[in-house]
């Protein structure tokens, strides 16, 4: 088997996607999440307030998609420690509704290496998607992860 050198390990997963996973915007999880960010507003947690809102039901906070399962991207073996979260973006076409099912998947958008003042670093961008069961896009999440030199060495990069 060929041993890949340099950032080749990550270059090879650019554009790769995970399988789609069906998730549910669960009422209990939305409530717990809203409480954990100190925002248990009726629009998120109170059924009657949700019914009376312009959305006709409760919605989820914008950073809630954190809890979904986005499947596994084959070949993308990131360590569970030592990664630095650099940036995070959400784009929505509408709020997520409590109780709805969402298909979620992820994709490696890009990987670049830079020489910084603290040595080499890798910059990995992962996109995560959520769409309704009829295939309409609801949100796109973009996450920029910084790999320090120590992390890169640990991965054999």
């Amino acid at each position: 088997m060929e041993v890949l050198g340099g950032g080749q390990v990550l270059q090879n997963v650019i554009g790769k996607t995970s399988e789609k996973v069906r998730n549910t915007v669960e009422r209990g999880m939305v409530k717990r999440f809203a409480e954990a960010i100190g925002d248990p507003h009726p629009v998120f947690v109170d059924e009657e307030a949700g019914r009376d809102s312009r959305y006709g039901r409760n919605i989820a906070p914008p950073t809630f998609p954190r809890v979904f399962d986005y499947g596994k991207i084959e070949g993308l073996g990131l360590p569970d420690k030592g990664l630095i979260h650099g940036e995070q973006t959400y784009h929505y076409t509408r709020p997520l509704l409590v109780g709805e099912d969402v298909f979620c998947w992820s994709e490696v958008e890009s990987y670049k290496e830079k020489q910084g003042s603290n040595g080499r670093m890798g910059i990995l961008t992962i996109c995560r998607y959520g769409e309704s069961l009829d295939g309409t896009g609801i949100f796109v999440e973009k996450q920029v992860i910084i790999l320090t030199e120590a992390v890169m060495k640990g991965m054999g990069i």
Partner: peptide, 24 residues
């Protein structure tokens, strides 16, 4: 980031957050 978004929570009757971008 989750906490910061709550500045907008009282306004969901007027619209919603279309884009939310943060640098840590």
């Amino acid at each position: 980031m989750g906490n910061l978004a709550k500045l907008f929570t009282p306004y969901y009757d007027a619209g919603f957050i279309q884009e939310y971008k943060i640098r840590f």
